[in-house]
Nucleic acid binder design. Structure first.
Lengths: 169, 169
DNA sequence: GAAGATTGATTGTTCAATCTTG
DNA sequence: CAAGATTGAACAATCAATCTTC
């Protein structure tokens, strides 16, 4: 199965509209951001909590879910990962004792991922450092107005990148 | 050698300032963006040009450099990658005939990466599709005003993430 | 048969160690 | 010895194929 419901960016190449100076500057700035910021957050989590950003996202999402439980497919959507990637990661974290899986009793097609007490303790331990990093690198770097602008901009782009929304309703 | 000159995000954990609702919304939006957007661009380049985004960045940077030449360390900075990663990638692309390396004649500590004609043809071939994807997913999703805001926001965050600047002067 | 989920193989990235040059 | 660069091993992500359940 392909990700994103078989939707892909297949640009029409008949006529190329190159980026003007302003567009290019904005894109260069964003390009640096989308590459470097994850690297930094990844490094902080890896060093201080021995977790990847994706692993942290999985634990965090589960910790906020009712009964600390989410279907694999929904969890993948929430954490911006593919189902395949999630499956591998959950298997690893299962060995570490942070999560476990069970077939949905009502519908055997679904698999539920559940957070263990140990996994919960792990997020609680890792969260402060991660949040502090996010604050230092992003939040505190921006004015309150910019924060609002950023949300609008992010939402707009996400509507193009993931039209169906990051999580299935 | 560690990346980023041994600078790391080591937050002070004595007191945690959690994110309020507005901060959290902005961060969630940005988090989705920094993960999903690269995935999309990666997929487009991989499918249409058999290049990773990083490989494309390397070729693009070289194509715009004087004499199609850049030092490895400077090229790593420009492409937001580590020197180690760049070294591996350049080796692969050398085999593909897109680039080659030579020791700096003046100072043997430096290695120069050079773009071949074939490599140049490759960027020229790949660029339209990539630019179209950037336009579709980002540029055309935003108002002109937002584009300017985005650049300011990106620059501000980058100043925190990479204080020394993405490329060494 | 379709959707959710898993798997194994391939490929790419990271990390620490190493080598070289000035 | 410090900075630039490379290497190989360990690890993570991707892709296509497969399996299961309804």
């Amino acid at each position: 199965m392909r990700e994103n419901g078989d939707r892909a960016v297949r640009p029409d190449e008949t006529e190329v509209r190159w980026l003007d100076e302003h567009e290019s500057e904005a894109w260069m700035s964003l390009a640096g951001l989308v590459i470097r910021l994850p690297q930094m957050l990844e490094a902080q989590l890896q060093r201080d909590a021995d977790l990847t950003f994706f692993e942290y996202s999985v634990l965090a999402a589960l910790s906020e879910a009712p009964k600390r439980t989410l279907r694999m497919s929904r969890l993948a959507g929430l954490t911006n990962g593919s189902l395949s990637r999630l499956s591998h990661v959950v298997k690893r974290m299962e060995k570490r004792g942070f999560v476990f899986r069970e077939l949905d009793p009502d519908d055997g097609r679904y698999t539920n991922a559940l957070l263990t007490d140990q996994g919960c303790a792990k997020v609680v331990e890792a969260a402060p450092g991660h949040v502090a990093a996010v604050r230092t690198l992003v939040i505190d770097a921006l004015e309150r107005k910019q924060l609002a602008d950023l949300k609008d901009i992010g939402d707009r782009v996400m509507k193009r990148v993931v039209p169906e929304g990051p999580f299935l309703p």
